[in-house]
Nucleic acid binder design. Structure first.
Lengths: 188, 188
DNA sequence: CATCGGAACGACACAAACGTAACTACCGGC
DNA sequence: GCCGGTAGTTACGTTTGTGTCGTTCCGATG
């Protein structure tokens, strides 16, 4: 991945992120974070959506808020997970307003192995089901509508998109993401 | 339930409705149908919603469309089930646009015992799961977001609301629902 | 026929969500 | 300092869904 220039290389150091154990899919972006346009590409949403969600405080960039035109928001890997969940819910026809409830919950409860977990919304509450049996219980005992978001595919797709970004950055060389590279050297 | 006046009594004859076997919860309203305002009360929605849904063809009255101001829409028991499903989805934060997909499917697939069935939406498809095991299978093998609507509570709540309407009509006597009563005698 | 209550109809307002596009500011290279 | 690229910012438009309210029509009743 590294092209040899320490200034342009992507950090390989793995660290504790905001969302619990590092499962290998975050690579080293966790320290630098992701810029707005990168996030849009990785998650598969429009810049307008990302901007609106930040402004209405659905999901604000946890590493750095923008300081005006020309500056950059920086999002963490955990932010990306949450954004991907929002996207999934929207794709499934769930209203943004409801996604807000889900994300409020997710913010406080992510910390385990996401690959086997599912976020379950049952109208007014959200629950993080950690195993398939947990879900079955919820389904069997539920009396109202359930929205079930498997997180395995979420993190898998994120890993793939981030890997693709890694590859793109490495292939493009030192000047591919000047804004990104310079921030890293800016003492971030 | 009958107050003795054949003109004002509610028909007790059970018949095949538009939604399969009569399960005892429809009473005899199936033949007469339900007027707009009654539907709103039974299902728990605003008249504006019902009107909009009829006008935008989400759910039109299957027994009779309105013929102008002052005339009446008449909805069947099956219409009520579908409306209740829509309401449940909306309450769960699912967008009306998505509910439209679900109702398109439901229109063609209702015919069994609803009390143990669930409607499952998985993004682009809808499935009617007839047993708890069906649902478990869908959940275990699903890769995207699932919306699960148990139909048991839907028909149970409908039965209760319709029973309440029956009681109200019977208690109020012959002039409680003139519009309704006269329709029955009008040869409907 | 006149009156009245009830139901549908039409018009407008508003909020939410997001697309489009122009504007502004920052940052880094030269 | 100048310039270009990039990202954020602002403004406006569109669509959808629903609330509010006035209008029109129908049918029953006196």
């Amino acid at each position: 991945m590294s092209t040899g220039s320490s200034r342009e290389s992507l950090p390989q150091k793995l660290s504790q992120g905001t969302l619990g154990p590092v499962d290998g899919s975050e690579s080293a972006w966790e320290e630098i974070g992701f810029r707005g346009p990168q996030v849009c590409r990785i998650v598969g949403i429009s810049y307008r959506q990302l901007d609106y969600w930040a402004r209405t405080e659905l999901l604000t960039p946890s590493l750095a808020e923008a300081q005006g035109s020309g500056t950059q928001r920086r999002y963490s890997y955990g932010d990306l997970v949450a954004l991907k969940v929002i996207k999934s819910l929207l794709d499934a026809g769930v209203a943004l307003k409801t996604a807000r409830v889900a994300i409020d919950y997710l913010r406080d409860h992510l910390g385990g192995d996401l690959a086997t977990a599912s976020l379950v919304l049952d109208g007014s509450r959200s629950v993080l089901a950690l195993t398939g049996d947990d879900i079955v219980d919820l389904v069997r005992h539920g009396q109202g509508v359930l929205n079930i978001v498997p997180l395995g595919p979420v993190v898998a797709e994120l890993a793939a998109s981030i890997h693709e970004l890694d590859v793109t950055v490495a292939a493009a060389g030192p000047k591919a993401t000047p804004a990104h590279g310079r921030k890293a050297t800016g003492g971030g």
